[in-house]
Simulated assay, not measured.
Amino acid sequence: MGAGLLTTVALVLAVLAGTLIPMQAGLNGRLAQAMGTPIWAAGVSFLIGTLILLPLAALLRSPGQALADLSGVPWWAWFGGLMGACFVSITVFAAPIVGATAMIAAVIAGQLIAALALDHFGLAGYTANPIGWRDLAGVVLLVAGVVVLRFGRG
């Protein structure tokens, strides 16, 4: 697969992944309603995901080799699971309160703010890429969009 095609496939899959976030938050919000707490709903969601991912991962690579390679992982890389748990729990809580559109706009604004910092300082394995005024303007406009989406409805 050529680099251009690989990039296109990756972007299409990223858009597809983006479509799943508001659906996941809504479905997990319904779980939270039934279970009485977003934390239980997030836990059940992660359990289902784990039960699906582990057999698939074992098909793609031997568990022994994958576990052996963990010794080279930097300490900070282990926080990805914690961040995923926080993300799912927060969206389960927020989605029914603010709605899918405002929640996703706020999530995207937060993602861009974090991405700018990660790129600018070269953190979490990213290459340093200084931010410019256009980057900042884009994030400011997106944050303004979140405000309009949430509070601009009459």
Rank of each mutant, 00 (worst) to 15 (best):
F121N: 09
N129P: 00
M83C: 15
P38T: 03
L27T: 13
I97C: 00
V44N: 04
L136R: 07
D135M: 04
F46E: 01
V9P: 00
V143W: 01
L67V: 13
G132Q: 06
W75I: 14
L27E: 06
A94N: 07
W78S: 06
G64C: 01
A117D: 04
G18P: 02
W75Q: 13
L116G: 13
G154C: 02
L112F: 12
A58P: 00
V44Y: 05
R134L: 12
A57R: 13
Y126C: 01
R153V: 08
L67F: 12
I131D: 00
V12F: 04
M23D: 01
T37N: 10
A68T: 11
P55H: 11
F93Y: 15
F121A: 12
G110V: 09
A42F: 00
Y126F: 14
L149T: 13
L27D: 05
F121M: 07
I21G: 03
A41L: 02
L59N: 09
G4E: 15
D135R: 11
S45C: 13
I108S: 06
I48T: 11
I113Q: 00
L47K: 02
T127G: 08
F93T: 06
G122K: 09
W75N: 11
T50G: 09
W75S: 15
G145E: 02
P74F: 11
A17M: 13
R61M: 09
H120V: 01
